[in-house]
Each structure stands twice: as C-alpha cells, then as structure tokens.
Amino acid sequence: MNVNALRAIYLFEMSRWFRTLVGSLLSPVISTSLYFVVFGSAIGSRMTAIDGVSYAAFIVPGLTMLSVLTESIGNASFGIYMPKWSGTIYELLSAPVAWWEAVIAYVGAAASKSVLLGGVILLTARLFVPYHIAHPFWMAAFLILTALTFCLFGFIIGVWAEGWERLQIVPTLIITPLTFLGGSFYSISMLPPLWRKITLFNPVVYLVSGFRWSFYGVSDVGVSLSLGMTLGFMAVCLVVIWWIFKTGYKLKP
C-alpha cells in the first residue's frame, strides 16, 4: 500500500477544508440552528410527542442526517471534481497510486469532514434540545457508515460531472427532496398507507430511521433493515467506482 500517497491526499484535502473552516462549519451550523428555532421551538412546541419523543428531540437525528448527507456528497464530489476541472488530476492519474488507495484517501477525507460536522451539529442541537443517545455505538456506526456511503456516491458524481452545474444537479434535484421526504421531520407512520409504501423506496428513510433508533430506541423500519440498506447502497457505490477505474470512465481516455 502506498501509505505516503494516502497520507498526502488525505492531508491535502483536509487542509483545504481547514483553510475554509469557518465557512465550512458555520454555514451548516447556522442553517441547522434555524431549523431548530423554527421547527423545534416555534412549531414543535405546538406539536404532540411522536413515539414518546418530543418533536424538537425527534428531529435531531433527521436534521443531523440531512446535513451529513448533503455535506458528504458536496465534499466528496468537489474533492475529485476540482482536480478534474483544474487539470491537476494528471498528477493523481500518473502517480503510483492504486484506484482503491485514491478512493480511500479522497472519500476518507470527505467522510472525516462530514463526521466532524455531524458531531458539531449534534453539539449545537444540545443547546436547543436536551436529547439523549440510547445506543452511542450504533449512533457513531450509522453516522460513519452514512458519511462513507454518501461520500462514495459524491465521488461518483464528481467523476461524472462535466461542469459545475452538473455537480449540483443530483444533490439539488434528487438528494435534497429525498432527504426532506425521508422522515427527517416526521415519522413515516404519520403518512397515509399508500405514501408510506412509496416512501419505503426512498433509501434515506432507512438511514434516518436507523439513526433515530440509535438515539431513542424507536424506528420506522427495522434496525437490521436500515443497516442492510445502508451497506447495500455502499456496495453499489463501490461497484460503480470499481467500474469507473476499470474502464477509465471520464478519467482516462
């Protein structure tokens, strides 16, 4: 394994993030705080508890997931798209680096940022809501798995995108709606039966449900199913990335 290359890519990516740390952290923290103020305090105070959990506490896992998903895709897609766009990717492609080493380094850096951000958001939420975490291990596991999976997905988008506009299309048109409709702000048991069934095709439902279970021990779908779906999506992303490097898709003519 080319450990020096892994370290170089990882540190390079992290230093880019630290250089813009205030913007990278402040923006999601402010928007999440606004969600808590509006949905948690203002509207939430008029809503009844869901599964015995106050509404303000109920939305904590969903809101954290919302930020982690968005940031994971954004960080990872930008991380690989930027050298493609600037042309500096020649250096990576001509270096003695295996494809999986490049993926570990880029996705690892992007996921590190997302997990750190998730932690900061949870700390921020604590200022608004006295939530508790029933299964800390599983909370961390779901957080890390989700970050890794969606960073892999972001990596694919970054390779696929041929312009800044395309880079935004998938997160804006697909991921954000799926996240909002994935039970971040409600339990899917509150939906009419038909919509409940349709919602089960949304992979974000499983992520949010599993993550919420790790907090409060209650979930919309089984925890094993949540875990299985997350791992399944991760496997699909890995296969697509393996294919990208095998064929040189949009990287090597």
Binding site: N2, N4, A5, R7, A8, I9, L11, F12, S15, E91, L92, A95, P96, V97
Partner: peptide, 14 residues
C-alpha cells in the same frame, strides 16, 4: 510548498 509536499507524497516518497 503545500503543492510540492503533495506531489512528493502522492508519488510514494516520504
């Protein structure tokens, strides 16, 4: 300097 360190590292050099 940062870009030099990156280039050396990515080619596997300490």
């Amino acid at each position: 300097w940062a870009t030099m360190k990156f280039s050396r590292g990515v080619h596997g050099r300490g």
